[in-house]
Nucleic acid binder design. Structure first.
Lengths: 292, 292
DNA sequence: CTAATAGTGTCTTTAAGACACTATAGG
DNA sequence: CCTATAGTGTCTTAAAGACACTATTAG
């Protein structure tokens, strides 16, 4: 595959023999979904060392020369959830960031490209592919505050950092594994970054709809925001706000079958609109605390 | 470095022999700065094939087992600009995204982790390290609109894309190389993504100050916004807005030495404040056009 | 009937932007 | 004196949030 001559300056200058211990490239996916009104993340139990028995994000090696990063992430997600191509089409998948500290995997230098996925409710994952035992873990139990911490958008040379640590986001207990479940490798950090990205992303994009089915009520949509942000929102104001943003949702003339569990009017049904960004944005309630 | 046994499931399952053609990992840096009121990007001329003679973003291979991605990016930037550690400390450097299509480099599968840098005015880069010939190219000449296009934050499975193509950003001609300079590899796309990130980032963070020296006037700061966004801003409103955002800038009691070129009052000097995000944000003037 | 929710009306406060105006200095 | 810029005042409009209220339906 390699020619000779001029490429020396490009390849060999940077590739001295002992660097030739290769770097492995993996993709890991922070897949989020809503179950019973709570945010869940897809996790797998590690079968062997290192970190045997601990939770980890689903992921795997990129197939050299055969697939792009996006394709690898989609493949891993499909394998882990048992999704077919059609179902995968309804999942939003975007790149989150890359993590490459040389000591993040004790075996060798592994660069992991993390992806973030928003999925509507899916069948239980366990049936999936290689890594039997993928499960949806409730997020609040894992990540009490979920401060973003590392790779994406972190200044490097610069000082100007304060330790302030603002509002608590998650509440309820009910840990499925041990509370504050530690993830293998640096996956705690990847998850925290993914959560922060998700929280920010639904502010200015209509992607909250990616957690829902084809049609949904405004209350369903509000439940997404409340679960992702971990804050209750004012129903009336939320309703008006959503309808006032052009292209966020569009009405299907339909109206939902069942009201609340104990009565109430039937809500109208909407589907995702054609906007790709929300203008004006739907900003989180005051984050003053963790803002500086 | 590798053990045996249980790791089979993790390593070997994904690592069949023919995949073992390694993937190379590089970092590439979109380094932006302001010169004569215009946005410039650091570029190098490629000495050999592929893409011999074309412009490319500065970058190089990550040293396996020796450095993190952040460190590799900082090292490459320092080598290319001839910056010492002190000067590097004044540069904002953050991860932009990763690019890994198998055919992006004709020689082999190379995953590039791109970084974005905001630098204050620096001495000319040419003196630098290995790749003699790094230069600051004016951005408007290269990237007339600079639509973001690929890796970061792009949905994969999903449709919902429109070809709309909004406001023109750059104007003036004066191409330094050929107009609409094509970059090697997929660096056009990386640059476009970096520009879009930069434009978005100065909306809700105080990072515009990273383009300036220790102290600056409000007009200096406005010049940054105008150059990055490619839009003239209303001086009076901008002034009031900047001072009203808590923690954006803080006054040094000083006042600048020289007014405009043809007179006027001396402007007060400010330095960067302690905020890490701007609340409320400084939003770009109506982007309605490219918004859906 | 009671209770909970869907959806709307209205008012206050904040912020953005248009515009006008004063003050300051160099040529 | 002329001109460009620094900085402030004021008004209009948009938007967010608090609060109140009506309508609808299950139990």
């Amino acid at each position: 595959m390699t020619g000779r001559g001029q490429e020396e300056r490009d390849f060999l200058a940077a590739y001295d023999p002992r660097d030739f211990a290769p770097i492995a490239v993996t993709v890991d996916v922070v897949a989020l979904t809503l179950r019973e009104g709570r945010l869940h993340v897809l996790a797998v139990r590690r079968g062997g060392p290192p970190f045997a028995g601990e939770w980890a994000l689903p992921g795997g090696f990129v197939r050299a020369g055969q697939e792009s990063l996006d394709e690898a992430a989609a493949r891993e997600l499909a394998e882990e959830t048992g999704l077919d191509a059609a179902a995968l089409g309804r999942v939003h998948l975007e790149q989150l960031g890359s993590y490459g500290r040389p000591d993040r995997d004790p075996r060798m230098h592994v660069v992991s490209v993390a992806y973030l996925a928003f999925a509507p409710r899916l069948p239980d994952a366990t049936a999936g592919g290689d890594a039997a035992g993928a499960e949806w873990l409730p997020v609040p139990a894992i990540s009490p505050a979920g401060q973003p911490s590392s790779a994406p958008s972190r200044p490097i040379g610069q000082g100007r950092r304060t330790g302030t640590h603002g509002g608590g986001t998650g509440r309820r207990p009910l840990p499925p594994g041990p509370a504050g479940t530690p993830f293998a490798f640096d996956h705690d950090r990847v998850l925290a970054d993914g959560l922060e990205r998700a929280r920010a992303k639904i502010e200015y994009t209509p992607l909250a709809t990616a957690f829902l089915g084809e049609t949904f009520t405004i209350s369903d949509l509000r439940a997404v925001y409340e679960a992702v942000w971990g804050t209750p929102l004012h129903a009336g104001n939320f309703h008006r706000k959503v309808l006032s943003v052009p292209g966020f949702v569009e009405s299907t003339g339909e109206t939902g079958t069942r009201p609340g569990s104990r009565g109430g009017p039937r809500a109208r049904l909407y589907r995702a609109g054609d906007a790709r960004r929300l203008h004006p944005a739907l900003l989180r309630p005051d984050r003053e605390a963790d803002v500086r």
